[in-house]
Design a protein around this nucleic acid. Structure first.
Length: 285
DNA sequence: ACACTGCCCTGCGAGC
DNA sequence: TGCTCGCAGGGCAGTG
């Protein structure tokens, strides 16, 4: 599941290969819905001849800026995958789109589950995202004071708040569970019930787990790869994600981990280290 | 504005 | 061996 560290790792592997390169064409496969409704012929016409000026990341979105002010927005969703390859190489599995460059390199987009999108924008690809995304959690603007303001007005479970891209951009299920575990906060705690000390801890641990993910070039739980086809290593550095269902032991206290479904996402946590205040009825299993 | 639900989509692993 | 079935979850539309 590509989250901020995975998308950033893809961006970093893509950047040296495509910046300053000129697009020579676009090939779209049977699933043209990957373009989000745009006709492939139009997308091809808009992109052909354009040069890549830069590649940015905003939350879990990749933004490719082109020389005429237009751009491409890419979202990998769950199983989306980008890979660089010479144009003559066979299409990769589940490939839906290939962006061809004049230097003979392809940027291929593949997605087993067809959730991901490659959207061509006639203008700045970031414009539509501004109202949909909260602050970047690794930016210097994201202070614990900012986090407190975001959480202070929400009754929803802290886990739901962390997954809300409008609150904070780029956190997904894996890094949310990891940050809550390190902060010893139960995922069902109402966001606004966190104490100032807990918010400071959570702020620190959000950045810690995201930086760990970046350092290890992403978490490869099933299908994630960077643009060079390399797996990440961060799965070896996770504390609780994915282990609450198999009865794994808490790395801190040894208690069996457990899981709950919150916001239709499975939350993995330690019922001993991450407790609900007494009196709350939704006690851990 | 916020909170919550259902939908999309399909390979994979578990169970029989 | 071969089949069925549940699971994975980001973003969005729809509803209250």
């Amino acid at each position: 599941m590509p989250e901020l560290p995975e998308v950033e790792t893809v961006r970093r592997t893509l950047e040296p290969a495509i910046v300053q390169q000129t697009i020579s064409g676009l090939t779209v496969g049977a699933f043209s819905g990957v373009l989000g409704g745009m006709e492939p012929e139009l997308a091809n016409a808009l992109l052909t001849g354009r040069r890549v000026r830069s590649i940015r990341r905003r939350g879990k979105y990749l933004l490719i800026d082109l020389d005429d002010g237009s751009g491409i927005e890419v979202h990998l969703r769950m199983t989306g995958h980008i890979e660089l390859a010479p144009v003559e190489r066979d299409p990769i599995r589940f490939q839906h789109l290939a962006l061809h460059f004049e230097n003979g390199i392809d940027l291929r987009f593949a997605d087993q589950r067809k959730f991901g999108r490659v959207i061509v924008h006639a203008g700045n690809p970031e414009l539509g995202l501004k109202t949909k995304l909260g602050p970047e959690p690794l930016s210097s603007d994201f202070t614990s004071v900012v986090l407190a303001a975001i959480l202070g007005k929400r009754y929803a479970p802290i886990k739901s708040a962390l997954l809300d891209q409008k609150a904070i951009a780029g956190i997904g299920n894996i890094y949310a569970d990891e940050a809550l575990f390190l902060s010893r906060i139960h995922p069902l705690r109402p966001a606004k019930s966190l104490t100032p000390e807990e918010i400071r801890k959570l702020h620190r641990n959000i950045r810690r787990v995201l930086n760990s993910g970046l350092e290890h070039r992403g978490t490869t739980f099933s299908s994630y790869r960077d643009a060079n086809g390399e797996s990440g290593e961060n799965q070896q550095h996770l504390y609780v994600y994915g282990r609450g269902r198999s009865g794994g032991a808490c790395p801190h206290c040894g208690h069996p981990l457990t899981h709950l479904v919150i916001s239709a996402r499975t939350s993995h946590f330690c019922p001993n280290c991450q407790r609900l205040p007494s009196g709350d009825s939704s006690a851990a299993i």
